[in-house]
Amino acid sequence: MIKYFLVVICLVFTQLIEQNNSYNTPKNWPAPFYNFKKNKLSKEKILLGRVLFYDPILSKDSTISCNSCHSPFSAFTHVDHAVSHGIHDSIGTRNAPALMNLAWHKSFMWDGAINNLDMQSLAPISHPAEMGSNINDVVMKLNRSKLYKKLYHNAFNDSIATGEHTLKAIAQFMLTIVSCNSRYDKVMNNENKFTPQEENGYQIFKKNCSSCHTEPLFTNGEFANNGLASDALLNDKGRARITQKKEDAYKFKVPTLRNIEFSYPYMHDGRFKKLNEVLNHYTNGIKKSETLDAKLQNGIVLTSNEKVDVIAFLLTLSDKQFLFDKKFAYPKEVIHLQ
């Protein structure tokens, strides 16, 4: 009975958000960081945000949408693409981050440049190698659309699109992108059991990886230099670009490992295509530098069998219900009405 109750909690997560204007935290998760009082959720605002997320109107030439680089079936990243793509076939310098459980994050982007989820969309909208537009042009285009007049009115009781409302609506949709129904979650909720191999992988993971990829979000939200050799051409200094501190050089935000099976390629520049390449980096590829994380000074020691077991565990973090959830899909029911 308890088992079914817990499953139902996770299944109706988004519906509860919409009906109660409240955000229900999955069992044993910390409280979300996002301040919902300043952007109260409603199903109309979430819908508007979802339509905007899928609409290339946000880009300068109306060719690139958020979804172009953040597709649901790949955990809202850009599968198979090392770095992001933009208008006119522009190529960026960093891997499009997977999007999920964003209400629990204090900062966004690989370098933490963004301080609030509301403001996140401004960066890709404005970046010349991504959407190449600006929020003023976006708002002007939206205000010429009959569909959006209706959607904004339904959401904000004001048919005029503003920067504030546009950003808040997109943030609302992103807040609903929650992954909490993987096999790992079921095991933690005593609804399922790991295989012996997965269990062994879990124990190895807890010993070697979880100080940065902390449960239940599988990230501690901090910035770390994990010993990747710097790309000579890009020389991306990560967090130091924002803080201008040399002690932050080559540090990048620790990504979540949830749905890692589907969010390849890996690392801030997408240099690794497979999970075993990632583990090989941690055991044999760590490059020493002044800012290398203290826990990685001697690398991680794992046997070949242990690596296989860790990967078996990582695959339990896949949440197929999340990956194929219709609530996150292209809003054909609305676009169809045009």
């Binding site: 301040n35 300043k38 952007n39 609030n116 989820l117 509301d118 403001m119 401004l122 929020i135 503003t162 920067g163 504030e164 409302h165 950003l167 808040k168 943030a171």
Partner: peptide, 9 residues
Amino acid sequence: GALGGDLDP
């Protein structure tokens, strides 16, 4: 986060 009026982005 996103604010309106004179603070609108």
